[in-house]
Design a protein around this nucleic acid. Structure first.
Length: 737
DNA sequence: AATATTCCCGTTTTT
DNA sequence: CGGGAATATT
């Protein structure tokens, strides 16, 4: 990520003697970078601004430690993303470090720890890892189980509450004790139920991995001590994004030796809403009084102009460590700000601009478009397609979220962990085998009553008898599971194949011939992935692969370059860099994002998010906004983002695009819409398939999206969008009836 | 039990 | 406007 101008060291160092080898590790570094790499024992904090060569410093330091004061096996490097872990691994390997260093994500490390110390942690060694979808379903089930209704109590809110509680390492009891509010009490109650169900099915969600690991380290001093002896040097990347559990883990792992190296940038802390505590990095020096602090302020990525603009913005934040950004790079062109009329025009303008760039000699280099919320991608996609530009979207959900993939994995999960009710429910009638909703409901209720896993329940004689006719199908399903258990003796790829063919899933997804239905292909891809995994980890068992599949679901879809425009949210942009960056939707309420006035949203974090986006740009930065944006079917007038006003005018090239003249495509559309609803007027009678006859009380919204308020015979008043509502105008001569 | 409507509700999401 | 879930329909 640090650009080539930095002079990548590519030669082989293996032939050199040890001292010159370590000398080579720092030969091309700046003073500050070198200081960080060569720092010996004791805590070290590396505050690394954007584009300052942070990754380079960490990898060099890891290699340096392994080659001087210790060996690779004693070094632990922790990242947040799989992508970062992989990159670090590759770069360290390229530095010719002996094998045996542990480089992985927090979650993977915790999962491994909990499996190897499952007894001390009080957890089943074959525990299931719950992904986000699993958690949502389990929360729903917990709500029902608590005697409440998911329609009354928003699942998302409870999910958030549980997430918040876990990030703060609070048990349901602690959560309720700390929050007296009525709603929080209810959430706490569901949380308790959730935990009960989760424990019963021998599963851990993502947060549990961290929390349980932190608890284990807290409570089992022997384990903690052994780990500290094993991992004598701990490096933690993106320290500004650590939450309480991660913080506890880091502290406990380095309690005696204090050999912790934290790297990060408080100005790039953008996951506060997920429990990350920026104070962890801000108070590092208090936590480790002997800490040495190294600041990397030289930027090797962006132009002077871009840095001055980004710096002016971030300087508005109060909660931060002052830090300047400097670069020896060129001055560069002005940062461009564009105000358009509508979101469509904004997108079209950006697309045209990219086209122009592409027609130039350097073709604009790598180009990215960032936005605050995913919903803004649609307009951009349409515009890019119209302009004939290839693009790629970094979407959060990927391969492992697909239905067919989750289905096979569910089979394997049930085999590995029969208590996994969630997975069992997923496959009990997939492929269809005559076990309908009513039967499933009955089983679920019984399971709830008896506090028994479904897999066991369906083997009970009395249950089968009570089930009546569908009992045969249920029994057949149970037999199938027993047959499939054979797969447990196989390596992951074989196990997959086995389950795919014997469960009938292969047949189910193989015959769907919809052209865009890539299900069969996806399954093949999954088998390939498993094969690859088995190749890389010859000793891995099926559990290990399942864990990998749960934790690695972020198969980074974003590939470098390829001449395609990259679309992503600002959050996804962290750690990346592009020659040209567009940030669209620079509007109040969108960036900074706010849903209702004075919600708890943290403007400083929003500013950091904007800062992260801006500092991804190497040469060109463009910020845009629309004066009108569609929200819930209607065009809403927007207010431009306050962040734009915080930028130094002298560095900007500001243009306000008026309603662009030629809009042939649209006017035709508009005309059609106008014609279609020309007969509509206030007072006319209409018929609705459900509500019957009614009278139009009001019409508004304009030619682009007509809306009508209708009073029905039963006295109810309803609003409709004409384009979509199944409303029919009643002819005048029909009124007689 | 599977398909067709209508209704409901909209942040960000490393693992 | 659009997806997803709850409900209505055959």
């Amino acid at each position: 990520m640090d650009g080539l101008r930095f002079g990548d060291y590519t030669g082989s160092v293996s032939a050199l003697s040890k001292p010159s080898r370590t000398a080579a590790l720092v030969a091309d570094l700046t003073g500050a970078q070198r200081a960080a790499v060569e720092h010996g024992d004791g805590p070290l904090l590396v505050l690394a601004g954007p584009g300052s060569g942070k990754t380079r410093v960490i990898t060099r330091r890891a290699a340096y430690l392994a080659g001087t004061v210790t060996t690779a096996a004693h070094v632990l490097a922790i990242t947040f993303t799989n992508k970062a872990a992989r990159e670090m691994q590759e770069r360290i390997a390229a530095l010719d470090v002996e094998a045996g260093m542990t480089v992985c994500t927090f979650h993977a490390w915790c999962a491994r720890l909990l499996r190897t110390h499952s007894r001390q942690a009080g957890i089943a060694p074959h525990f299931t890892v719950l992904d986000r979808d699993d958690r949502r379903r389990l929360v729903k089930s917990a709500i029902e189980s608590a005697g409440l209704s998911p329609t009354h109590l928003p699942v998302a809110a409870v999910e958030r509450a549980i997430g918040d509680a876990k990030c703060e390492m609070q048990t349901p009891e602690a959560y309720r004790a700390s929050r007296p509010g009525w709603q929080e009490q209810t959430c706490g109650h569901v949380y308790a139920e959730y935990e009960k169900l989760r424990v019963r099915m021998e599963a851990l969600d993502f947060d549990d991995l961290l929390v349980s690991a932190a608890r284990l380290l807290t409570e089992a001093e022997q384990v903690r001590g052994r780990l500290e002896d094993r991992y004598r040097y701990v490096l933690i990347d993106e320290y500004q994004d650590t939450n309480l559990a991660q913080y506890v883990i880091a502290r406990l792992l380095t309690r005696d030796r204090q050999n912790v190296c934290a790297t990060g940038d408080p100005d790039q802390s953008i996951y506060g809403w997920r429990g990350a505590n920026i104070r962890n990095i801000l108070t590092f020096e208090k936590d480790y009084p002997t800490a040495r602090v190294v600041c990397l302020e030289d930027n090797y990525r962006s132009t002077k102009r871009i840095l001055r603009v980004a710096d002016a913005l971030i300087a508005r934040n109060c909660q931060r460590k002052e830090k300047s950004l400097r670069t020896g790079n060129a001055e560069g062109p002005a940062v461009v700000v564009v105000e358009c009329e509508t979101a469509e025009e904004e997108a079209a303008w950006v697309a045209r601009e990219i086209r122009t760039l592409r027609d130039q000699e350097e073709r604009g280099g790598e180009v990215a478009v960032f936005y605050r919320v995913n919903s803004l991608s649609r307009a951009m996609e349409d515009a890019l397609r119209k302009e004939g530009l290839a693009y790629q979207i970094a979407r959060g959900v990927a391969f492992y979220e697909r239905r067919e993939i989750k289905d096979v994995l569910a089979y394997l999960r049930v085999l590995v962990n029969p208590a996994d009710d969630l997975s069992l429910l997923r496959i009990i009638n997939t492929p269809p085998r005559g076990i309908g909703g009513t039967t499933v409901d009955r089983l679920v209720n019984l399971a709830r009553e008896r506090e028994q896993p479904l897999a066991r329940l369906i083997t009970e004689e009395d249950v089968l008898r009570a089930l009546g006719r569908p009992a045969a199908a249920v029994q057949r399903f149970d037999c199938l599971l027993k047959e499939l258990a054979e797969a447990l003796t196989l390596a992951a790829p074989r196990a997959l194949e086995y389950v795919l063919s014997y469960s009938g899933l292969r047949a189910l997804f193989g015959r769907t011939e919809n052209m865009e239905d890539a299900a069969a292909g996806n399954l093949d891809e999954l088998v390939s992935a498993a094969t690859l995994f088995q190749h890389d980890h010859p000793d891995a068992r099926l559990v290990d692969w399942l864990e990998y599949a749960a934790l690695v679901s972020d198969v980074d879809t974003v590939r470098e370059g390829a001449g395609r425009v990259t679309l992503m949210t600002l959050h996804a942009a962290k750690g990346l860099e592009f020659d040209t960056v567009f940030i669209v939707g620079m509007e109040d309420g969108l960036l900074p994002l706010r849903r209702d006035e004075e919600d708890a949203s943290d403007v400083e974090e929003e500013r950091r998010l904007c800062f992260v986006g801006m500092t991804r740009a190497r040469r060109r930065l463009v910020l845009s906004r629309a004066r009108y944006r569609m929200a819930r079917g209607a065009a809403i007038r927007t207010v431009r983002s306050g962040f734009l006003d915080e930028l130094p005018r002298a560095e900007l090239e500001w243009s306000c695009l008026e309603d662009s003249a030629p809009r042939a495509g649209r006017s035709a559309e508009e005309q059609a819409s106008a014609e279609r609803f020309a007969d509509w007027s206030v007072g006319r009678l209409v018929r609705h398939p459900l509500h019957g006859l009614g009278q139009v009380l009001a019409l508004d919204g304009g030619p682009r999206s007509w809306r009508a308020a209708v009073l029905f015979r039963d006295g109810s008043r309803r609003a409709f969008i004409l384009e979509h509502a199944p409303l029919e105008l009643v002819a005048f001569d029909e009124v007689g009836d």
